[in-house]
Structures are given as C-alpha cells and as structure tokens.
Design a protein around this nucleic acid. Structure first.
Lengths: 206, 206, 206, 206
DNA sequence: AATGAATGAGAATTCATTCAT
DNA sequence: CATGAATGAATTCTCATTCAT
C-alpha cells in the first residue's frame, strides 16, 4: 500500500539523468548551445553529448537538425495568449501599468532569455522565426495599447495610444535583444515614465 | 618591346573588375554573404567566387576566416564620430530634431543595413562585436540627450532628457534590428512625437 | 466472456490488409523496392512501411536484410520444372514453337519482371543468384534444343540444334534484361523466324 | 641542355604511384569497386584507399559520388563511332564477318568488362546509363545489319538482315552481361554460324 | 605577391540491427 | 509472438586552411 504510489514514482524518476525525459533533455541542451554559439556553430554531436544521449537518438526524435530548432519554437517559446491587458492595468498610473506589463510578458525572465537569444540571432534564416517574431510584436502592440488606454487617468486619443505602444514595444524588444549578450540596455522603468509623461501631456486639456 | 609589358601594368587599374581593389572586393562580397546567410553558413569559397578572386587570395589577406569579419567591423562600419548634436537640432521642435538625428546617424541607410545585419546576428559570438554595439549605444545616448536638451522650447531636467534618450535610442536600435529581416518595425516619427510630448509635459510648469 | 477473445482471433484473417499474410506482404514490398531502387538503396524501414507492418517484424521473420533477398529467390522465383518441350512444339513450325516456348517460360510476365530485375541487378553480389541464373540458362538451353529438334520438319543434327538453342536463349535473356529498364529489346518473333530459317537451311539436302 | 627535357620527364613520373595521375587512379579504383560490389556498396573511403589518395581529393575532383560514375561513362567507356561495317566484312562469309565484328566492338575485351559490369548492374538507376545502353544497342544494330548485307554471297532482303541483326546483337549483349559474373554465356561463333545459315537459306532461290 | 590543388578534421545524416517489454 | 524505441558504426560531403610554386 505504502509501496504502491511511491514505488511507481521512485522507479519512474530514479536516475537523475532521466528526470527530464531524453527528448526534453535534447531540447534543453540544444537551446543552451544554440544560444551560446549559434545554430550553425553548434554540432549535433555536442548537443547529444551535453544532453547525455547517444547521437543517434537526436535523429530519431528530430530527423533534421533544423527540426530541433523549430520544435524549440513550437514547444518551448511562451506565447502571450492568455495575457489580458486588464491584468497589467493600474488605474490612473500608466507608468506602473507598463512596468507591470513588461513583467507579465516576461521577455527577460531567465528561461525566456535563452530562447529569445536564439530567436534574435537566427532571425532571417528560418521563415518560422520571422513569422513568430512578427506575431510577437503584433501581440505586444495590441496589449500595450490597451494597457495605455486602460490606465490613463483621463481619456486619450487611440492614435496617441498607438504611437506610445509602438515606442514602448520597441523598448521592450530592444531590451530583450540586449540581454542576448548581457549588455546594458534601455531602462524599462525610465521608458515607462516617459510614456506616462506623454499620456499625461496629451490627456491634459492644457 | 620593353614598353609592351609595362603598358599592361599601367592599364591594370582601369579594369572595371579591378576598380575596387581585390582586398576591398573580398570585404564587400563577404559582407553581402555574411548578411544573407550568416557567418558560419557562408563558405570562403563562395566569398572568393563572388568577389571574383582566387580562393588563395582570401587567406593571403585574411589568415583566418574570422579576420574577414573583424576587418569588416574595423574598416567598414561607420562610427558616429564627426556627428554633433547641433547638426540635428531644430530649435524648439524636439520631434523634428529627433527625426533629423535618426536620419543623420543613418542606421537604416542601405549600406549600413548589411553591416548592421551581420552585427546583430553575430552579437555574442565575437567580443569585438559586443564592444562595438555597446559603444554605439553610448554614443547615440549622448547624442540624443544633447539633441533633446538643445531642441526643447523650455529647459527640462537633464535626468528627464536622459530617460528620453534611453527610450529613443532603444527605438532606433529596434528599428535597425527589424530591418535585418525586412519586418515592420517601430515608426520613428511616431516615437519622436511621443518624445516631444514628454518634453513638453515635463517642461510645462503645469 | 471466454468466447470473446477467440472471436477476435477468428476474425483476424478476413481483414483485407491481412489477406496476404504479413510475412508475404514483407516479401512483396521488398521485391517491389529492390527492383525499383536496388537492394542497397532500399531501406528496411521503407519495406516495413510499404508492407504496412511494424519495423521489428521484418527482423523477426528475416534476421538479416539479405535474408529477405534470398528468401525471395527461394520462394518467389518460378523455376521451369514442370515445363516439357512437348508443350511448346508446333510440329513442323520451329518459329511458332519457339515463340510459344518464350511465352510458356514467361520471362516477361509482369510478375516475373520484378524478380528478374532484382536478379540481373544483384547478379554477382550473392552466390545464390549466380547459381540460380546459371541453372536457368541450362534449363532453357535443354528445353529450347528439344523444341527445335521436335518441331523441325525434317531431322537436323543435334549439334546444330544446340547452336540454335544457344542463340535463342541468349535472345530470351537479353529480352528479359531489357525489360528491367523498359528499353527496346530484341524482337522475339523475328529471332524465332531467323532460327527457323537456319533449321530449314540445315535440314534441306540442298 | 641535356638536363633540360629529360629532367622534367624524369621528375614528372618518378613515383610509381603517380604514374597514372591521381584523378585517373580514382576513376580506376572506382571502376574496380563499382564492378565488384556495386555502386551503392562501394564506399568513397574505400575508393580513396584503393586509389592511394586522401579522401578529400575524391570530392575535389568529383563533387558528388555519382559524378565518379558519370565520368566513368563519359571518359572511360569506348563508343563505337569510328567503327565501319566495312572493316568487319569478309566478303561472302557472313559467319566470319560477324565473329570479326564481335571482336572489333570488343564488348568482351578485359578492360571493357569492368565498365560493362557497372553498366549492366546500374542499369535503371541513372538515366545516363539507360541512354548509353540504348545508344549502344542502336549502333550495334546498324553495324550488324550492314555487315550482314555486305558479307552475304548473294543479296538478301534488308528486312531479313534486320532481323538477323536483332538476333545477333542480343547474343552480343547477353554475352557481355554474362561476363559480369564469369558465367558461361552464349557461344558467339556458334551464333554467327546460325546467322550464316539463315542468310544462306534466305538468299538461296531454292 | 599570388594561386589553386590538396587535405583531413569534422559535419549531418542514414540505417541495419538489437532488445526490453 | 510482436514491437518500436534505441544505438552506433558507417556514409557522403563540406570547408577552412595549407603550401609548393
């Protein structure tokens, strides 16, 4: 009885190496290496080695090397679908709202950084990547625009909100891009404050 | 007779193929190919072919392949040295000034795009590239800050100018990055207008 | 309850896919693929796929890949055992007799062509194949010689009949070989007529 | 002076291994191996080894493995172009003429046998091979027909000559095919005699 | 100074075969 | 009996780099 469930669990995940599942370990190792050296420069043999699996297994799961990359896109990269503008809105405080939004989309969450690095590096080599990045920008645009509209103390023209969104999304993406190489990027909080000033200025009847 | 051979030498330069100099042609061909397919995916043989020079010559001028890349960085990438903030300033009109600045630094001039593409793609692989991009950002920051300060109708705090500069430079760089793959990036003019609103709001005594 | 399972077993055979038996389906698929692309170029995985059986089953029935080939030779290639010269003989008409013989041995029957293709292609790689082809030629020689002797209007020397047989069998085999690639081979009827002329000439007292 | 020409020659071909030229040695080694084990089963590494050249050189001369095969076809396989029917004709003796023709086309000359082996084996895999074999058959047909017409003691109908040619060419090709595996093929002399009988029979007014 | 033939260290990928279940 | 996940040896091919001339 006490052996029932525990036994299964104990046997299922016993080997520390097996804890993640071999297919997943290949994906993780590949993500790490693609990010560090680029897709072309990362040999499949190294991926297998780092994942601790035989070389043949890579091609059992992913017939061609690029399938590893596209699978990474499909399975590992978080979309922003569930995210609602309302979750970020701090009524009457656009600056705080935008900072919160940035936090929620989490482009700079560590786990994301590795994948984002691959994304920005390999941009333009695979159509899938271009498509993904374009969709990401569009999603962020809509989200940001809604947050700006929703958090403004007084109503502002949608057109202005749109321009602000364009600006802020660029900052968001430039920030993500900067993190690829650990450089000093834009200050998200500062940008949010500037956006708030613009909101304020344009809302004010003057 | 003795004049015969020298004549050939004298004529050597006008040859259209020779017009640019073989070393330069190698660099141009490499730039094109690195941008199009990435550093790793561009074979030296293709570079030689496209440059119209024998393969051996590549390694005569550039002992290792990566030397072509670093030379490209050193010799071909325009710095922003001569540029003075004053050249961009349109007194009293921050928006126009920023647009003008963007134009002057010319990150999106066609010639630049090729090199920028390489830069952003190979970011993180060569330390030289990281160094260059960081310097570029710093230069742009200073320049932008000065332009904002110089074009504001009424004085604004330097701290605010700094934040605006951070924001606008991010937009500038995100725009440059977008051009790598021909995607739709931020609208520079819109961003400039937003910056102007912020300047206005913060300058206004309210 | 106890009838439940057995019922399933009883129904097992009618399944259209099962109609031929899985082992037979493997052989058929292999024959097709070996003929189309050659033994080496036909992967076992494709054979299994085309046969609609799991890959493991191949090696259950045929421990090594070449066992599929040898089994094909043993079980699928029609010998000419039952065939009697008398069945082909049209008395007094050697030409018609030879054409009839060609028809009876049926080297060019569609089903045979596939196997013959493999045979001629893989000739020299497996000793079994060489043996088979040599036996085939000998059988055909005897058969043809008898048909020539039996159909000649007037008696001819066995030696001449032997030479005619050698010639006609060569035509038969060259014809079979030609069908491998769908090329235009010899005209069997024309060859038979020529043989008849020779018979006639040598039988005639002049 | 005396050192001038001889020196060059002496240095040019000194190494016994170099005597044939490396590119040629690759082709010879490949021919041998393709004939012995088939195109697919002969690894490029073995070819290089047998030719005594580094593996990379194969791909320097022949970018893809199949280029070795097609080059063999283009450069090593003797066409029958210069051959004139007249060269084989022994007036009034069709049998001798046909034997002589067989000798002149030399399908069974040792050097040819290796290449012919490849040809017949790989028939159907490369279109170039099919084309070549079809052209060969056509050339032989014309040649044989002319020899038959030219050597007949008394005139015979061209149609009959054509049928005889079809028959004899089939024997020729079957003979070549047989030599692939060292089996016992048709007797060319016997076939020639039979052809002569047919010529005789059909020329005779009876 | 210039060149192109040559090389060998890998690269991605394939595939027959094994074996635990 | 049957299976499909797993493996590693082998294969074709690429390419930066060298070097004799």
């Amino acid at each position: 009885m006490s052996t029932d469930q525990p036994a299964t669990l104990r046997v299922a995940e016993p080997d520390p190496e097996e804890s993640e599942g071999r297919r997943e370990r290949i994906l993780s190792a590949a993500a790490e290496l693609f990010a560090a050296q680029g897709f072309d420069a990362a040999p499949t043999s190294r991926i297998a080695e780092q994942a601790g699996v035989p070389k043949g297994l890579l091609f059992y799961y992913f017939p061609r090397k690029r399938d590893i990359l596209t699978t990474l896109l499909e399975e590992r990269i978080p979309e922003t679908p569930g995210l609602q503008a309302a979750q970020a809105v701090v009524a009457g405080d656009p600056a705080a709202s935008l900072v919160r939004l940035a936090d929620l989309v989490g482009l700079s969450r560590h786990e994301s950084v590795v994948l984002r690095t691959i994304l920005f590096r390999e941009l333009g080599t695979l159509p899938e990547i271009t498509t993904y990045v374009e969709r990401l920008r569009r999603n962020l645009l809509t989200l940001t625009e809604d947050v700006v509209m929703g958090s403004a103390a007084r109503p502002i023209p949608r057109e202005t909100a749109h321009k602000i969104a364009q600006t802020f999304v660029a900052v968001l993406l430039d920030d993500a891009n900067t993190q690829r190489y650990g450089g000093e990027g834009p200050d998200l909080r500062a940008a949010a404050e500037i956006m708030a000033l613009a909101v304020d200025r344009c809302a004010a009847p003057l």
